[in-house]
Amino acid sequence: MRRYLRLLFVQVRASLLLALQYRWDFLVEGAISMFWALTAIVPMMVAWRGRPAIAGWSFPEALVVLGWFILLQGVLEGAINPSLVLVVDRIRKGTLDFVLIKPADAQFLVSTARFLPWRMTNAITSLVVLAWAFAQIGRPPSWIGLLSAVVMLATSVLLLYSLWILTVSAAFYVVRVDNLTWLFAAVFDAARWPSSVFRGTLRFVFTFVIPLALMTTWPAEALLGTLRPGAFLGAVAGSIAFAAAARLVWLRSIRHYTSASS
């Protein structure tokens, strides 16, 4: 366990050193992240103009969902996607062999291969949006709400990560999946709206197939103190089960891997 912590530290440090070479990126990324957040707020302002609630969500409450979305987007683009792009490239070129012969768990190594620390600017943007939202609501979130929201953050990151592992496993079979990251980003975009906006099939898909509701709407509800305890427990249990399943699929497909060049 301690060895893996040390390894994680080394990997993060390598990414950080790489990122420090491009310091200007910090400003540019920060500006773009703020900018995208603004573009998300404008449609909301137009939609909520002159009406108190849409599908049961008031404007500040929907802002909480948006803040959560921006945070998770940062996690996705800063910690999850870069490694995905890298490992898919390695599978195609056959250089994954060099990772596999290293004396550590391969899943751990490929998933910590690259981070984009500048994406942390999303976290700042998200805090600003959340602060604004709660200023409008007029009361801070309760301690229990905060605590359960942190747990929900862990579950949603776990969910995102597991989806990611499943995608990488698919790369062993179909090789070209790098544009799947674009597809996922496009689908993930739906998570910026409270899930009760969606009806029928879309709602089912976004809760159970691609669990977007679990990722942003439920944590926002936890923060607002309106999440049912049953849903909370279900989300925690569900994401752990999902992660376990993803691990199994990974182990199966790594056995299937037969290097590209040999």
């Binding site: 939609a47 849409i54 599908a55 496009a186 709206w193």
Partner: peptide, 26 residues
């Protein structure tokens, strides 16, 4: 690949879900 690219432009369909929910009340 082209098909995947087309799928990445489904944002109007998501906006459609949002706006129809808005218009349902008035």
């Amino acid at each position: 690949e082209l098909f995947v690219w087309i799928l990445t432009t489904t944002m109007p369909l998501i906006m459609m879900a949002l706006w129809t929910a808005v218009a349902e009340e008035a």
